[in-house]
Simulated scan of single mutants.
Amino acid sequence: MTAPAAAFDRFLPKALPLARAQREWTPADGPLPSIYLGHGAPPLFDDELWIDQLFAWAQSLPKPKNILIVSAHWEAAPLSLSSAGAHTPLVYDFSGFARRYFEMTYATPDATELSRRVTAAMPDNEPVHRHARRGLDHGAWVPLKVMYPLGDIPVLQLSMPTHDPERLLELGKRLRSLRAEGTLVIGSGFMTHGLPYLTREIMATNAVPGWSSDFDAWAADALDRGDVDTLADFRNKAPGMPYAHPTVEHYVPLFVTLGAGERPDAPVRTTIDGYLIGLSKRSFEAA
């Protein structure tokens, strides 16, 4: 039987020298893209292909000065920020997995300056609560541990205050200026997330249910055309609903990503596609 996170353990020796050599972002690079990614949960650490895809994506970009991430797993209003102190704790918000995953760490540096910048980017009528102890949940630390395994970039998590696409687009727009300062803005979710509808057969064979492939193809087409209105009307227009998203918190972070892009209605660049246990891994970046 394969040991938990064995793929990640094989990955680290080859990844760490590349991570140390990664060129750091400078103003001459211009704004970093904003990105939307599927975060994978602990099984990501057992998926060699997905690990390599995420790390290659990170390596294709200059190393960010900071990372700001909105995850499906922190829904809270008013807007809230995780603890900005160094060695921010992790939130192990999953169950039924091997002990190894609950012992993983990701000790990132102090992010106080990024906390100030995010707070300053919000209007006076949008207060931001700064948590003293709230850590990074698995929608943040799991993919980042793969993409930036040194853990040497300040990371903050921003809560998702609503599911409304228009409000999330507006939130992304407020964060847009941070990209020109070397901050990587991330929306973290899963392009399909119909966990209640995954059968044992699907999970054992990685078969793709029609509701997952249909929703993914619909989203890919709309993203390729920059059709934000269609994406926002997913409850009425997307095939595969509500099976693809019986709850929508894993889909809607993409509107933060699009809003933080220079033009929310511009076509995006798909960086990862394919499926894990029948769920779409589709991820993209917006310029």
Rank of each mutant, 00 (worst) to 15 (best):
L18E: 07
S82D: 04
A7L: 09
P109G: 08
V155H: 11
P161N: 12
A28I: 01
P127N: 07
A140S: 14
D265A: 12
T105K: 12
A58S: 15
S34G: 06
K14C: 07
W50P: 00
A72R: 04
S82F: 08
S212I: 04
L16N: 08
R134V: 02
R179F: 06
A207F: 09
P17L: 11
F255I: 12
A76M: 14
M241P: 00
G274C: 05
A220S: 11
E181N: 08
V91T: 07
E75I: 14
N206V: 10
F94R: 12
Y275E: 00
E166Y: 08
H129C: 02
V185L: 10
L18T: 01
A232E: 01
M147E: 08
L37E: 00
S177H: 13
E126M: 14
R225N: 02
E201T: 14
A77I: 00
F97N: 05
S80M: 09
A86I: 09
R23I: 06
L150V: 01
L150R: 07
A244K: 11
A19Y: 03
G187D: 01
D216M: 03
L258R: 08
A58Y: 02
R167P: 01
V252H: 05
M191Q: 12
L54D: 00
L254F: 04
S212R: 04
K63S: 05
A58I: 02
L90M: 11
T192L: 05
H193D: 05
S212N: 09
P4D: 06
L156S: 11
T162R: 08
P209M: 01
H138W: 09
D265L: 11
D9A: 15
K281V: 00
A132I: 07
R100K: 09
V248K: 01
E75N: 03
P89G: 10
I51T: 09
T112S: 15
A86E: 12
D47S: 14
A84N: 08
Q53A: 08
W141Y: 07
A107D: 13
N236H: 15
A140Y: 07
G187H: 04
W141V: 10
L79K: 06
P33R: 14
S280F: 02
F234P: 02
V128Y: 15
R176S: 13
A7P: 02
G40W: 13
M147F: 03
S177K: 05
A77M: 03
R116T: 10
A21S: 13
R235A: 09
R100D: 07
P239K: 02
E262C: 03
A15G: 03
